[in-house]
């Protein structure tokens, strides 16, 4: 069992998975935030590799990516950051990256580097399973998980495909749309999670739009993990001391207990 999958073996425990864009607002922030989040009780950290055209992201993460790119945060830099972090924290680290930087790096070489630097898995939002064979084989060769995504618009056929192929967990996009803090969660969230649950035993984590402890609590009733990104990014920018971000993550953790 992979390190990611074993996170979900704890009984009565909902995993908390914060997302941060590497190098936003600074590389130093990333290096400080991850160990702090781990100490608060986060279970996995999702490290975003900034991309020039982040199609699945809303305004907050677009802006964070843009600024990180401006500071020269390449996939190579992200790997260096990951290497430092994996020496400091015990919990699994996953990269969230668009496909083109991976393709340019070379999928095999990228996976080999990921494994070397202590990355446990990849989430590639613009890579559907139909196009994912090459990367999937490389991830397998290097002991990485490759997480695929489903949305409420996914058909039964698609749910079957993704549940069969995703490893580590399955990323359920809570709504039809892009990342970003929302005031309200999608009304059909429970039935969506339920419909995927019927078809797989793999862990299900819900992300996109989850931005408050109350929402996280609602998600935790049906899912195995909660992914929170944009709200944390906003707080990292608002308060560079990381105090606000940490107290928010703490509230999320408490809401899930």
């Amino acid at each position: 069992m992979s390190r990611i999958a074993s996170v979900f073996t704890r009984a009565n425990h909902t995993a908390l998975i914060p997302y941060i864009t590497v190098g936003y607002p600074t590389i130093e922030t990333t290096l400080q935030a991850v160990p702090l989040f781990a100490s608060i009780g986060c279970d996995i950290i999702e490290l975003g590799i900034p991309f020039s055209d982040p199609l699945a992201d809303g305004a907050t993460i677009q802006q964070a990516s843009h600024e990180a790119l401006g500071q020269g945060v390449t996939p190579g830099v992200c790997l260096e950051v990951a290497e430092k972090l994996s020496q400091q924290v015990e919990i699994p680290l996953v990269f969230m990256t668009y496909y083109n930087p991976v393709l340019k790096f070379g999928p095999e070489q990228f996976c080999s580097k990921c494994a070397e630097t202590g990355i446990d898995g990849l989430i590639v939002p613009d890579l559907p399973p139909e196009e994912g064979r090459e990367l999937e084989e490389s991830t397998k060769r290097h002991g990485l998980d490759l997480v695929y995504l489903l949305s409420p618009a996914s058909t039964e056929e698609r749910i079957r495909l993704v549940t069969g192929r995703s490893s580590g967990f399955i990323y359920l996009v809570s709504l039809t749309g892009v990342t970003g803090a929302r005031n309200r969660l999608h009304a059909g969230l429970e039935s969506f999670v339920g419909s995927v649950r019927k078809r797989t035993e793999k862990p299900l984590c819900v992300g996109f739009g989850v931005s408050s402890p109350e929402q996280a609590k609602r998600v935790a009733k049906v899912a195995d993990g909660v992914i929170v990104g944009s709200r944390i990014i906003q707080l990292l920018d608002e308060d560079r001391s990381l105090k606000n971000a940490c107290s928010f993550v703490k509230c999320l953790r408490e809401a899930l207990l």
Binding site: F51, D53, L69, G76, N100, P101, L103, K104, F105, D126
Partner: peptide, 14 residues
């Protein structure tokens, strides 16, 4: 969503 020729830098940024 398409694989084709692209103008990009060494890090795969468009």
């Amino acid at each position: 969503g398409a694989k084709s020729y692209v103008l990009q830098d060494d890090a795969g940024q468009i």
